[in-house]
Nucleic acid binder design. Structure first.
Lengths: 350, 350
DNA sequence: TGTTAGCACTCCACATCATCGAGTGCTAAT
DNA sequence: ATTAGCACTCGATGATGTGGAGTGCTAACA
């Protein structure tokens, strides 16, 4: 429906305005456009067209006698229609990421860092939430007389430990029984499938050691529960200083940075897409489209990745509205592809 | 040697200047002091004394016809001699910290947060480095045909996992042997004690499975190695915006924040004290005394804690030179005491 | 001899003012 | 439909001036 109200020439001019503004960050005037484009139109004509574009809400003037800057609507149009897909050589990153680390958490921190370095914006990456993940293996072992160690491994190859205090030593035979009990009953189950019935049955069979079972189950829930506090890795937040329109008022910048520090807030940006099963694409929030108030002067681009079956997280970039959408989305795509299914592949180098 | 050059009255005046400046952040003039103190001296007298203090290097003038502000030397004197020990009711924190979490890493993040909220400065807390820590327990288990899980527990109750790929399945009997082999040879050893001899012996006894042993040993080294990348938790970094003298130039602030983000840099601040065995006190770096260049306009206060035998980390606070040293040091002391030996105590609630 | 009152001086902070120029909208000519 | 021209707007920039807080110095005082 957008296209109806814009003719070819207006689109060209809008495109020129936005591109120019993305580069310079300054309001762009009619003369600039007249020279910039291959339209061969005088500044006066451009001015008329620009007045129209303003009336239509695609661009706006910060004040009379200044050039025009894109409005949110303008950016939206740009992202949806004007932007070209470039497929640049960011692919190296993939190699880099894979080779440089093994631990998932470190990968994610790396991803955030690389992305920040590459784009000059602030970035965030959420650790996977273990959505619909299944129990693969549970093991209890004696640590000493007072403590036992519980290790839980999921299909997604995520491992969690818990040290559980016990009132009295457990002999090896009992331990073996408990292990068999746990594994035979829980293996292959997703969190949702472990219901009260299963739990009751387990506890009954464990007899006097039912408290240990409770403890283990708590840990299982914690490992796989979706209400687990979401871990978010951020990087390059100080990049936001590079864009005067975000950092002029100091207060604004401070608020923005606080949002990044108080990571729980970012979660709302990010969990939103996680839930929608099918949506695996890339999301763009411009200005007020973002659910976070403090980011109304920014744009946010997010992508959802899926490390393995049911293990998902989000990568996001925050920058000024005039961010280089093409580059950012390219980067996100590449990284998303790198991360997708990373756990399914064998880990060897060759 | 400081005391020699300062008589009673000069000290009182210096004290007044510093305290006043700590409160207001503005250069303080002679008239203010004359009213502030119980010395009952006119501003003119104060002026003379202040001129002396300036000549001695304890205070300085930002420009002619402005009041005086403390120099680094002045702050140093204040911290060393003037400051009173207050013992306030920060003790609640201890309870709070302990009750609200069990996992060490979360405790530390909490500590950083609380400290930041309490002091209004930027804070950082390093995760423990497992200095002289010992192996307590190692266990290998079959995950599936291609992978085994190694779990390593140290005396400090830190647990680490690694998934190790194997070329062919290991039967249970072999696994048992490997477990016994590892535990009987490594238990109770510190990292430094696992030398080439031990390793060679282990590998020999493991026969065809020596590659697994190598892998496990790698993980052990990683768990306990002191060259492990140091984890640092920061909080309240945006607090630094509250102090104009740090954030006026925007560039300065940006640089400072970058330092906080690039956490590796902070390590130098923090590892310094870790090595000195006996030093368990509180360190104060004023301005250029800090090893980090970007912090030359700040003061840094650090404290080293010891969770348990040989497991140490550092808590630090970064703020403007005119920070409330008393409060900060109080807070650090309390927190340090809370953390000290936390792992030695039983974990039960009562 | 130490303290104080007084005074001239300095210099920053702040507000006022004028100027400049980029950019606009409108009108009239092409 | 396009363009040249022109008057107009308005922020950015820099010069100017004023007020006030604070100093150093000198001279008077206890």
């Amino acid at each position: 429906m957008d296209e109806i109200e814009l003719d070819e020439r207006k689109i060209k001019i809008l495109d020129a305005v936005i591109r120019n503004y993305l580069e310079t960050g300054e309001p762009v005037g009619s003369r600039t456009i007249s020279k910039y484009t291959d339209l061969n139109l005088s500044s006066a004509t451009i001015r008329n067209e620009m007045a129209d574009l303003e009336e239509l809400g695609y661009i706006l003037q910060p004040h009379t006698s200044a050039g025009r800057i894109p409005s949110d609507k303008g950016y939206r149009f740009y992202v949806d229609h004007l932007m070209q897909e470039k497929n640049r050589e960011v692919a190296d990153m993939k190699q880099f990421v894979i080779e440089h680390t093994e631990k998932v958490e470190q990968v994610l921190q790396q991803v955030a860092k690389i992305l920040a370095a590459n784009t000059n914006y602030a970035t965030m990456v959420t650790a996977p939430s273990y959505h619909r993940n299944k129990v693969k293996f549970i093991q209890l072992s004696n640590l000493d007389e007072e403590q036992i160690l519980a290790v839980i491994v999921t299909e997604g190859k995520l491992v969690k430990n818990k040290i559980i205090p016990v009132s009295e030593p457990i002999d090896n035979e009992t331990m073996l029984k408990l292990n068999i009990l746990l594994n035979s009953n829980l293996n292959g189950l997703a969190l949702e499938e472990i219901n009260l019935g299963t739990i009751a049955k387990l506890k009954e069979q464990a007899g006097i050691h039912s408290d240990i079972i409770s403890n283990v189950l708590d840990t299982v829930a914690e490992t796989m529960g979706q209400d687990e506090d979401i871990r978010i890795y951020t990087s390059g937040t100080t990049n936001l200083f590079k864009y005067p329109e975000l950092s002029d008022s100091t207060e604004k910048a401070s608020e923005l940075l606080s949002t990044f520090e108080e990571k729980q807030q970012l979660a709302s940006l990010v969990t939103e897409n996680l839930l929608e099963e099918e949506n695996t694409g890339i999301q763009v929030y411009i200005g007020n489209e973002s659910p976070i108030q403090t980011m109304k002067d920014c744009s946010v681009v997010t992508a959802t990745y899926e490390l393995g079956e049911g293990i998902r997280g989000t990568i996001g970039i925050v920058g000024p509205k005039r961010m280089d959408y093409e580059k950012v989305m390219d980067n996100l795509k590449v990284l998303k592809n790198s991360l997708d299914g990373i756990l399914d592949k064998p880990k060897g180098q060759t």
